[in-house]
Design a binder for these strands. Structure first.
Length: 217
DNA sequence: ACCCAGGTGGCCC
DNA sequence: GGGCCACATGGG
């Protein structure tokens, strides 16, 4: 396979994007913040679920609705067990039959099993990742987004932007999730900051946007 | 009226 | 185990 073939080349590409677009902490200040409090960690995790197969404009509308009702926290979301109110508030994010259940399932897991998201973050990466993947509605991309940005764990996110980026630059033939994830992780220093930055830089490079996609903080 | 947007689980074979 | 497919909304 093409692992290990161009370790330095991929890192050079990262540095090139960094030079072109600047430090991602200035582009996505919340997601790349060095210090995150639990409130921010929870909002990032909630945002990761709301934005599944959905534009950020719509995910933001859902986040704003939750914030307006003072329900933008995992604890508060667990109080909405009948899902009707939750469905109503996050409706702009689409998929009203599945997303409320997904959000509630994740919130319940976190609140029941752990003191806080930071507490969940004390689990080692593989354990935490497997627990997330066991939850209804959390697939590899959402799990890795929560791990990388909400919990600051060194795991690489593969999303549509990453696939397009890899395809356009012909970095790898195999575009499967696990294959691409290994490709990035094995050809870069295992550093959470680099993983976070690279992912932001790929999106900025692909979309040309210069600001955080998540408006609510 | 179309098309798209940071996926996932449930089918089918 | 890989390859399809439905799923919902708001904005261009």
């Amino acid at each position: 396979m093409n692992y290990f073939m161009n370790a330095n080349k991929l890192y050079q590409l990262y540095l090139q994007l960094y030079k072109k677009h600047g430090d991602p902490v200035n582009l996505w200040p919340q997601w790349c913040a060095k210090k995150k409090d639990d409130v921010l960690r929870e909002i990032i995790a909630i945002g990761a679920i709301l934005t599944q197969r959905t534009g950020w404009r719509n995910a933001n509308l859902a986040l704003k609705n939750l914030k307006r009702e003072s329900l933008l926290s995992l604890n508060k979301i667990t109080t909405l067990a009948n899902l009707k109110k939750l469905a109503e508030l996050i409706r702009p994010a689409g998929f009203y039959k599945t997303k409320p259940k997904r959000l509630f399932t994740f919130a319940s897991f976190s609140v029941k099993e752990y003191e806080s998201l930071k507490d969940f973050g004390r689990e080692d990466l593989e354990t935490a990742r497997n627990k997330l993947l066991d939850l209804y509605g959390i697939g590899p991309e959402t799990a890795d987004t929560i791990l990388l940005y909400a919990l600051d764990k060194p795991t690489f996110i593969i999303d549509e932007y990453t696939r397009r980026f890899v395809k356009q630059r012909k970095l790898s033939q195999n575009l499967g999730y696990d294959n691409l994830k290994q490709f990035f992780e094995q050809n870069l220093p295992k550093d959470v900051i680099i993983f976070q930055n690279f992912h932001v830089l790929i999106i900025v490079e692909q979309k040309g946007i210069k600001h955080s996609l998540m408006e609510v903080v």
